[in-house]
Structure formats: C-alpha cells, structure tokens
Nucleic acid binder design. Structure first.
Lengths: 199, 199
DNA sequence: GTCCTAAGTGGTACTGAGTACCATAACGGA
DNA sequence: TCCGTTATGGTACTCAGTACCACTTAGGAC
C-alpha cells in the first residue's frame, strides 16, 4: 500500500546491510587509529554494536573485512569481462586484456583516499598482502575462464591474464602507492611488454 | 685431539641441525597422515621430541615449516642469479631470465615425490598457497634487484622477472601438478610470450 | 491482529596459534 | 673446574575462529 512497501527492500535485508556497513565502518576506523594487528575482532564488534559472533557471520575472518568493498567490485568486473566480445587473434586478446585492466585499475584508484588507506594496510601487514594476491589470482583465473570459453586456446588463455597481473605488479612497484600515477605506469608496463620481443 | 674435533662442526650446531631436521621430518609425516589443518604444533613438537616452545624458536609459524627446504634452495638460487653476467639488451634479459627460471624449476621438480607432496599441501590449504605466492614474489623481487644492479632500466628490471612468474603460474596451471610435465610447459609458456607480440 | 516458521542475534565455552617470561640444563672457552 | 652464553621446555596469557544454544524478530498464512 505505502509506496515504501511497493519499492520493497525487504526490511530484513535492510537491517542486514546496515549491520554489515556498521562493521566495515567500525573496522576501518579502528584500523586507521591503531593498525590492523592491534585491533581485535571483539573491538570491531563492540564499536559496530554487534556481538562478536555476528562479525564472523558476515566475514569469514578478520582479513576479509579489509577486502569487503574490493570483493563486490571484482564480481562486477568479472561479469563485465565475460560480456566482452571474443578475441580473434592472440594480439587481439592481449590488447583487449590490456584495455580491460587499465579500466579496472582506473576504477580501483578512483577513490584515491580509500585506495591509499588500503595500500597502507597491505604494506604494513604481510598476511593482508598475501590475501590480496589471492584475490588477484582469483580475478586472473576468472578472466582465463572467460577467454577459454570464448575460444582462446591454451596456453594463451591462461598466460594473457597472468601477463596483465605481471604488468600491474610492475606498475605498482615502479609508481609506488600513488593512485594518480598508477594508470600511466600500467600503460607503460604494457608498452614494454609488447615491445619486448618485437624486433 | 680426536679427528672429530679438528673437522669441527661445533657440536652445538650439530644438535641444532638435528633438532630442526627432526621437526621438519615429524611435521611432514603428520601432514601426510592427517593433512595440514588437522595437525597441531603440539603434535609436531611431541613427535619431534622437543617442546612446543622450541618449535617456534626454529620456525616463525606453523606454515614456515612447509617451506623450510624451499627456503634454502631459494637463497642458493638468488646467489646464483646475482652471479649472472649483465644482459646487454632487453631481449637478452628475458632470454637469460627464461633460462634461469627453467633451470630453477628443473631443480625444484627433481625430487618428484617431495614436489608432489608439497603441491598437494598447497592445493588443499589456501593459506599455504598464499604463503607460497609470497615466497615467489620475494624471489622475483630479488631477481629484479639483481637486474637493476646490473644496469637493466625500469620498468624492464621489474617487469621481466614478473613475466617469468606469469609463465611459471601458467605452466603450473596448464600442466597440472605433474613435475615431469612442468619444464616443457614452462618452455611453452615462454615461447608463447615471446611469440605474442611478434608479427 | 494471532500464530508459526525461518532467519538472525549474541552469549558461553572450547581448541589451537602465537607470545612473554622464567627457571634450568648444557655447550664451549678460560 | 668454573663461568657466561646459548638453548631448552614449562607455565600462563591473548586472541582468532568454531560449535552450540537459547532467545528474538521478520514476514507470511489465516
């Protein structure tokens, strides 16, 4: 009857979303104040005003909360990648992957503040870096699956996304944590890659 | 006086090595029997006949013991890489890196049984895979440092070793865990890489 | 509204990793 | 033989992560 009813984000789900948001917000606040290692799950739960148990219902472990935002972005990008047209040649596949990766990185670095805080956390906590690598690998594998499904033969289907990751890692290393410099450095790495074995 | 005294691996150090070996042996036995997650550090310490505390004196955490052997190998290979002659061109650097990586992988897979057990552990335990990736990255960074020190400019100094890792990951994925198939698959990936942008 | 079921919550209690500390043992040199 | 350094193993602690349980509440049927 009421407009709110017909628009329907079914209350239960809204509560759920709110709890999740509170947890993420509390976590990032505390991480910024004290650093990842010095914050306990109990601390986060307390500030988010939920039970410790509830934290683990929303996030599999303490590390996951750090990647909560990235995770949903990734899912988006995997879907977008799946929608890409098939690549005719291997050069084509590489060019397409390059374009895709650059666009992805541009979005990742769009919120410079958030990106920087994220990078600072990773730099200070090796376990978080490890976890980030796992995320990257998952994305790379999803891209490989998509390429394979669209006819790119092995080993190129696996190799090309791995090369994109190599370029990203390179750019990240050369450019430092500055989000503004990253896209250009990434283009540069791809240029280098393409130029490498061309004579 | 006694010959043993003059050959001198100073008893204390021998004991230390023996304790370490016992821990590694006990750990791998137990992992093979029950799997990584189902073995506690206390279990390992007990079978190795040392105190739980002692385990952590030799290994920073439970995961480290899995990579104990690899770690010493890595140190070796980093030194060997440092001793390589400087690469004149970028093509040269890539070719050299390729040769080096293939040789490294051949040694890694030489003990097929050990390699397989290791891979099985990684496959069954994501955290171990994460840690392995960290090790790979450390090696890659060491290689980059060496290239840079010998005059290879950025971003190639960073990129080339990252590309080698990309090839390895690709080979590992395409070939499966079979150590015998790995070197050939690796060569294949490098061929693909070199061929990719050559027209 | 009333009732019912399923979903969500938070508390308690447990295991196990990792750390700090300490008292003791034993190597190795004088 | 004595002494300082090094290594050991025990105790006790914090905290992540899991299992379980009793309690609440959304939301549908009537």
């Amino acid at each position: 009857m009421l407009p709110a009813m017909s628009i329907r984000p079914p209350l239960r789900q809204r509560k759920r979303q709110r709890a999740r948001d509170q947890i993420v917000a509390a976590a990032f606040e505390l991480f910024a104040e004290r650093g990842f290692a010095e914050v306990t799950v109990a601390d986060i739960a307390e500030r988010a005003e939920v039970g410790r148990t509830t934290f683990f219902r929303y996030f599999g472990d303490k590390q996951e909360v750090v990647f909560s935002e990235e995770q949903t972005l990734m899912d988006d990008w995997v879907a977008r990648h799946r929608a890409l047209p098939p690549a005719e040649t291997l050069d084509d596949a590489l060019a397409q992957t390059r374009e895709f990766t650059v666009a992805l990185v541009r979005e990742m670095t769009a919120d410079a503040e958030h990106f920087l805080q994220h990078e600072r956390l990773l730099a200070a906590n090796p376990e978080l870096n490890d976890r980030a690598m796992r995320k990257y690998q998952r994305l790379v594998e999803a891209m490989s699956d998509n390429l394979r499904a669209k006819g790119t033969p092995e080993p190129a289907a696996t190799l090309v996304p791995q090369l994109a990751l190599a370029c990203y890692r390179t750019a990240r290393h050369v450019a430092g944590p500055d989000p503004a410099a990253l896209p250009a450095a990434l283009e540069d790495a791809f240029e280098q890659l393409i130029g490498l074995s061309r004579r």
